[in-house]
């Protein structure tokens, strides 16, 4: 298999040369450079008393708050509540957005039926609907789920639609010439062909879901990371706010990384086109 290794290298080289700016390849650890510098400046500034701890608490205070919130299990309870809402909302959204995207991708004629409605909804920020959603669904979980559904529906739907409608009809014709049934053509040609697009939509949707959810939790909730911030604000506990922000950023980056790895396993051929990392 020596020949194979060579052609793999060749592809990697091609992907590098294709970039507009020559880019040295840096190891993973380099990504920690800026966070560490920021941490150092933060620590130094706090130690020198450059700002009031009320405006920005010291790293040590934040660390203590993180420890306390973790030890009492409170942090995990809030993270769990937020994550559960996202799991629900995101699943629900995928279950509607994906089939609809496939349907409209295959039958563009139906677009006229849905297009005005979808265009309208697309331009209304989900948080603007929150007061109405609370009226309809109550202050409980349902209104938060609805916000996430609204926030994630469009990236998933639009990317699925795009992937399906841009799938090369010539490839589908190959399936026809080989005697594949309509179901097989969907499963074995259309679906894999649009998978990269669908995965992009899912990844974007997952990112949007965090933002929308935190917004909703800030306004009306009794648990979740957004609520934690809201509560800390009322009590002027800025170190708790920083803990919540750090938790959000880390969780978001973590889910995205997991998702990226999943996508790479499901659609390895995309890597070959040099479209690996980045958004």
């Amino acid at each position: 298999m020596a020949g194979m290794e060579k052609s793999q290298d060749w592809i990697k080289g091609a992907a590098d040369d294709g970039g507009l700016l020559p880019c040295p390849s840096l190891g993973f650890a380099w990504g920690l450079l800026f966070p560490l510098v920021a941490l150092f400046l933060w620590w130094g500034g706090s130690a020198l008393g450059l700002w009031s701890p009320f405006l920005l608490p010291s790293p040590a205070a934040v660390g203590r708050a993180a420890w306390r919130l973790s030890a009492s299990g409170e942090l995990f309870r809030h993270v769990g509540a937020s994550a559960l809402r996202i799991a629900w909302g995101f699943s629900l959204s995928c279950l509607t957005a994906f089939p609809l995207g496939v349907l409209l991708g295959l039958r563009p004629g139906l677009g006229r039926l849905f297009h005005p409605t979808l265009e309208f909804l697309r331009h209304v920020p989900p948080l603007a609907l929150l007061p109405m959603l609370i009226l309809w669904f109550g202050i409980g979980e349902a209104s938060k789920t609805a916000v996430i559904v609204l926030a994630t529906f469009f990236p998933v739907f639009l990317n699925t639609l795009d992937g399906v409608s841009r799938c090369d009809r010539k490839l589908i014709e190959v399936g026809r010439s080989l005697g594949l049934s309509e179901g097989e053509r969907f499963r074995r040609i259309l679906f894999p062909a649009s998978l990269p697009s669908v995965l992009t939509g899912l990844r974007l949707g997952l990112g949007y879901s965090w933002r929308a959810l935190i917004g909703a939790e800030l306004i009306a909730a009794s648990s979740g990371l957004g609520y934690l911030i809201h509560d800390a604000q009322a009590l002027s506990r800025s170190e708790v706010i920083v803990v919540a922000i750090l938790a959000m950023g880390l969780l978001g980056a973590l889910t995205d990384e997991l998702f990226f790895r999943l996508a790479r396993r499901l659609a390895p051929w995309k890597e070959l086109h040099g479209l690996g990392r980045g958004n």
Binding site: K170, L171, E173, V174, S177, I189, A193, W269
Partner: peptide
């Protein structure tokens, strides 16, 4: 009947 198309038309993911 098997048809070989004018372009290869291979599935890029396989």
């Amino acid at each position: 009947v098997g048809l070989v198309f004018q372009e290869p038309r291979l599935m890029p993911w396989l």
